[in-house]
């Protein structure tokens, strides 16, 4: 069975102006939503208390919220979580109120409304911890970026490294843009997903670049655009199948993993889709425009081997 079999190379590079504009627009929109709406950060980052409860009977979330407001809890927000009987209650930080007490008080208050209420989960994060998480997240991102650039410079050439990292952060920004636009909750697990996207989406770029490097050595007269088109076309089948498989695993988490993995899987899905797009339509044109050519690979490496003389 074979789905992809291209007779001729797809002229991706000739569409590069259009695709770059599309990318740029999506990117700017993402930045716009990130700055205007911001991320809906989870309590892990903002500090505060999160209580997940399970009710015996179904209660409207607004009703639970009213009860909590009535009893003077700091800025409660109540949301259904998974089913209508499960709810997540978020409480803001308040000076002088200990976390230990707060969650117990919530349960005691709700017990009056429904004696069968069950405490499923409590998370309390103090303000200093939240700040640290934000800092650590940024540091991790920086480390990934530096690591990838260093590795790709070592394995390929600096133009490739720069192109890869730009398209990488393009993906990252767009994923965050989606989270800002839809105001999906950005939690620690989502951060983990976003950082793995950084590592994962560069894969695609590496595969294409790898083929391009091989082509540079193999085809002596081809232009950079032709080389890149060929590299993209020959790896297209692998691209679609690999990402299809990864996506299958991710979707399995999305559907079966329950609410805790919901946004994790969502972030990965968006990351994978834009990862494919950007490695073809962003990083390749960038490499081309930065002027990568044959001399960058052939000069420094050993002469082409016999197996590589095939056209």
């Amino acid at each position: 069975m074979e789905i992809f079999h291209f007779k001729r190379d797809i002229p991706c590079m000739s569409w590069s102006k259009v695709t770059i504009i599309i990318s740029l627009v999506t990117f700017l929109l993402s930045v716009f939503f990130l700055t205007t709406r911001g991320l809906h950060l989870s309590v892990e980052f903002t500090g505060g208390t999160l209580v997940e409860v399970h009710f015996e009977q179904t209660l409207p979330a607004s009703h639970v919220q009213d009860i909590l407001v009535e009893h003077g809890f700091p800025e409660p927000s109540v949301q259904n979580f998974g089913t209508s009987a499960d709810m997540i209650i978020r409480l803001a930080l308040k000076d002088g109120m200990s976390s230990a007490q707060l969650s117990e008080d919530v349960i005691a208050t709700l017990r009056a409304a429904d004696p069968g209420v069950q405490l499923r989960r409590v998370e309390f994060i103090g303000p200093q911890v939240g700040e640290e998480l934000v800092h650590d997240g940024l540091k991790a991102m920086l480390l990934v970026a530096v690591g990838i650039v260093a590795y790709l410079t070592f394995r390929f050439e600096w133009r490739f490294a720069v192109a890869a990292i730009i398209s990488n952060f393009h993906d990252l920004t767009i994923v965050l843009g989606f989270f800002a636009f839809f105001q999906w909750e950005f939690s620690l697990t989502v951060l983990a997903a976003v950082l793995s996207i950084l590592g994962y989406s560069v894969n695609e770029t590496v595969v294409v670049f790898d083929r391009a490097r091989e082509n540079f050595r193999k085809y002596k007269k081809a232009s950079t655009a032709e080389i890149l088109n060929n590299a993209i076309t020959t790896t297209m089948s692998r691209t679609v199948i690999t990402h299809g498989c990864t996506e299958a695993a991710v979707l399995s988490m999305f559907f079966f993993g329950g609410p805790s993995l919901h946004y994790f899987a969502l972030a990965l899905t968006i990351g994978i889709v834009f990862g494919i797009y950007s490695s073809i339509f962003v990083s390749c044109p960038l490499v081309m425009w930065m002027g990568a050519d044959r001399s960058h690979f052939v000069k420094t490496d050993q002469p082409a081997k016999s197996a590589d003389t095939r056209p």
Binding site: G147, L152, A192, L195, S196
Partner: peptide
């Protein structure tokens, strides 16, 4: 490259 991301997550990640 994926391993680089994993290591960064390990160094700066907390808890889960």
């Amino acid at each position: 490259t994926t391993l680089i991301a994993g290591v960064a997550l390990f160094i700066y990640g907390s808890g889960p």
